[in-house]
Design a protein around this nucleic acid. Structure first.
Length: 574
RNA sequence: GCGUUCGUAGCUCAACUGGAUAGAGCGCCUGACUUCGGAUCAGGAGGUUGAGGGUUCAAAUCCUUCCGGGCGCACCA
């Protein structure tokens, strides 16, 4: 339980007990009451809107109520030292010395898990799921890191999390990919010239995959594409997935499960899923209207199986069968999600690229239908990454094969910078990724700024011949905080709140922002010593005040916990 | 046309499921290095939160109508 939850529950308990004294009849909207960090210019530790919320429901003056609550809290909660009624009726609270020390000790006790909030859900989080037709490019990077960090965040809170990659190894794109490998194989073996056609993959990595296949399978039959397809598909996919897994590994991402679309079809899971939808009466055999937007050439009016996704708010019903009667990509995906439900996950998360926004309604509808509204599917969309180099936009073209791969990126920038940078914006906003900035080792590059704060802390600890895992004992007799330390402490107390809101809305970007702010406070705290001797931490190799030592430790604990969630290293020296 | 998403300082973005005087970084201006590591710090200027209307003690946040940008709109994947 964090500091806010702890005190809020105490406050609410007291209000309930003293309902009559406070002349409150209606306590229905107590859930709207919050306890939070006051704005920066207000010199208090906590702030609550309780009298504003309750005065409305009970039609009484918020200021009078606030004063009554103030007296009650000061009387009953020993950790509260001073309370002021401010603005329209906020209660600002200062903690007593015992309160502060008790909360600090709590942090030292919890250490690695400080900030986590116990939760016990079973999550499946699907991310990356890049087509297995080649290595990853920069565009995949954002969703990959977003998904990984979100997983870390949910794990930090004690949830059960399975990180999953859906391999789209079925359908036309794969066929084209395998054909490209096939032609490269013939190029190597029969010296046939590879003729680049529109539907084929031009990249050099196809050659690499082909030559690896030949090395391992000298006698592979490639006389006829149709006959060798199955075997070749298996080998080609092995090759491309190896590339992708290597890219992911270098970014610090490891999936728990790779789920193959082909297997889904082989195991007949699609039939089963469609039958299940049919039994629930969400499928009909009928005609779809032609698409509304631009005219499409190949549209045909054919009777086919249709999922009635409009029942759940989709714009139009969706086809489960193609013209030739085989299943659509969507039908397969329905089966995949049905399988997730059958594996007893109660929370599903999909991380998608911006170009899949239009897909969310139909797949959510399918999950709702299949689970009888019991399982929640949350789709998070990562907007585009715009690359900049030398101040100019850097265009990519996948068709021409001149896209920037994750490998290209890693050649220039380290993993830590990439991860931190990719999370430095909310996922639903486009992100400018500037090659030059991300290489800088200055304040312009926030990852170094945060790492540097941590390294500085370590340099102090080393000077004192101490260890970060040491137990800090706070001497309550002489414990006295200066203004900077009070500011820092409030920030430290805020950490659990940041974790909570980041997990609640699936918005991991709040963590880098917070860590940056915390680091700012630290660098400023540190620099006070440059201006004023009295603020130096160390004198003749010894710590001057035990308070400052405990603060350094607190900051280090939080930075470490935060960076661990981000999957970014915290070097002790830089 | 429909859906979706965004619009906040010159630029790039925050703002904790409606809170107090809307905050950072960059850029610009001023200052601090025989340094407890300057990969840093201190200070300053900079705003009608795209526009109008509504809901309420309280709106950048919710509703509504416009305006503008992104993405999507096959039975493809």
């Amino acid at each position: 339980m964090n500091i806010f939850e702890n005190y809020l529950s105490q406050i609410i308990k007291l209000i309930k007990l003293n309902k009559d004294v406070l002349k409150l009849q209606n306590l229905d909207n107590l859930k709207n009451v919050n306890l939070e960090v006051p704005p920066a210019h207000i010199n208090f530790d906590l702030s609550t809107n309780i009298s504003l919320v309750l005065s409305k429901a009970n039609k009484i003056n918020p200021n009078n109520l606030a004063n009554n609550i103030k007296d009650l809290l000061l009387d009953k909660i020993t950790h509260f030292d001073k309370i002021e009624v401010a603005g329209p009726g906020f209660l600002n609270i200062k903690l007593s010395k015992e309160g502060i020390i008790s909360n600090i000790n709590d942090i030292f006790k919890n250490r690695d898990v400080y900030g986590s909030k116990k939760s016990n859900e079973k999550y499946n989080i699907e991310f990356v799921s890049a087509n297995p037709t080649g290595p990853m490019h920069v565009g995949h990077c954002r969703g990959a890191i977003f998904g990984d960090v979100l997983s870390n965040l949910l794990l930090f809170n004690g949830n059960d999390v399975v990180k999953e990659y859906y391999i789209n190894d079925y359908g036309n794109q794969i066929k084209n990919f395998v054909e490209s490998v096939y032609l490269r194989l013939r190029e190597i073996k029969f010296k046939e010239k590879f003729v680049a056609k529109e539907h084929l993959y031009p990249g050099n990595y196809i050659k690499d995959i082909a030559s690896k296949i030949i090395k391992k399978n000298e006698n592979i039959k490639i006389n006829n594409f149709k006959d060798s397809f199955e075997k070749l598909k298996e080998l080609s996919l092995e090759g491309s997935m190896l590339l992708i897994k290597n890219d992911l590994k270098q970014l610090g991402i490891v999936h728990d499960n790779f789920f193959s679309e082909t297997n889904l079809v082989k195991k007949d899971l699609v039939n089963k899923a469609v039958k299940e939808l049919q039994s629930k009466n969400y499928v009909e055999k009928g005609y779809l209207d032609p698409p509304k937007g631009e005219l499409t050439k190949d549209w045909k009016k054919i009777k086919r199986l249709i999922f009635k996704s409009t029942t759940f708010g989709d714009d139009t019903d969706r086809a489960l069968q193609k013209n030739d009667g085989t299943w659509t990509y969507f039908a397969n995906d329905v089966a995949y999600h049905s399988d997730k439900i059958n594996r007893k996950f109660n929370k599903l998360i999909n991380i998608l690229g911006a170009d899949h926004t239009g897909y969310i309604k139909r797949i959510s509808a399918a999950v709702t239908a299949l689970s009888d509204k019991k399982v929640e599917l949350n789709c998070k969309v990562c907007q585009l990454v715009k690359l900049y180099k030398d101040g100019k936009p850097f265009k990519m073209s996948k068709r021409a094969g001149d896209f920037i791969s994750v490998q290209d990126l890693l050649k220039e920038v380290n993993k830590d910078s990439i991860r931190f940078m990719m999370l430095s914006r909310s996922n639903d906003v486009e992100l400018d990724f500037d090659f030059d900035k991300v290489k800088e080792k200055t304040k312009d590059n926030p990852v170094y700024y945060v790492q540097y704060a941590y390294a500085r802390i370590n340099s102090i600890i080393k000077t004192l011949d101490k260890n970060l895992s040491d137990n800090i004992i706070i001497n309550s007799e002489s414990f006295n905080l200066n203004e900077y330390e009070k500011k820092i402490l409030r920030k430290i107390f805020e950490w659990p709140k940041i974790v909570e809101s980041a997990s609640y809305k699936f918005e991991p970007h709040k963590i880098p922002f917070y860590l940056y702010e915390l680091s700012t406070l630290f660098h400023s705290y540190w620099s006070k010593g440059n201006e004023d001797e009295n603020f130096k931490f160390i004198e003749k190799g010894k710590i001057k005040r035990s308070e400052s030592l405990s603060f350094i430790y607190l900051i280090a604990i939080v930075i470490k916990n935060g960076m661990k969630i981000l999957g970014v290293s915290t070097p002790e020296k830089m």
